[in-house]
């Protein structure tokens, strides 16, 4: 099996791919990026917490016009994963307003970005519809 790296550090690969946030130990605010201190309460201790892999679409857009080199159309969304908001694309779905809707139930899925010259595969993520 080829070696893999996640597209972003907050994506945990393996048998059960999921997202991992830095949670402020004082107020519980969650961050996916590296923070110097908590933007909510200014404390500076964080612990890693796993984020639910299923959720509900709180907002979406279908991007038709993007920067050069970005394939379109694609569905960008904010997904509520059991109380934690997550940014991601809605994938494995027709990118149109008939197939994507507010409140839609989705789950995390991984995608391949291809291999670099060392044969290392980068793996990204999106959210796919949960079959009814």
């Amino acid at each position: 099996m080829s070696q893999q790296v996640p597209l972003v550090e907050y994506l945990v690969l393996g048998d059960d791919p999921h997202l991992r946030a830095h949670e402020c130990t004082k107020c519980g605010a969650r961050y996916f990026d590296r923070r110097n201190a908590c933007a909510s309460c200014f404390a500076d201790e964080f612990r890693d917490v796993d984020i639910a892999t299923s959720g509900e679409v709180k907002a979406f857009t279908i991007v038709v016009f993007a920067a050069p080199g970005v394939p379109t159309p694609f569905v960008a969304a904010m997904v509520d994963c059991n109380g934690t908001s997550v940014r991601g694309n809605i994938i494995n779905v027709e990118p149109d307003a008939e197939h994507v809707s507010l409140g839609m139930k989705v789950r995390l899925a991984t995608t391949s970005l291809g291999e670099d010259t060392n044969g290392v595969e980068a793996v990204g993520f999106g959210f796919e519809p949960v079959p009814a």
């Binding site: 597209l7 550090e9 920067a67 990204g124 993520f125």
Partner: peptide, 12 residues
């Protein structure tokens, strides 16, 4: 984010 590639269009 420790991103290995641009995320615009890949993550929202």
């Amino acid at each position: 984010y420790g991103a290995v590639a641009p995320v615009d269009g890949r993550i929202g």
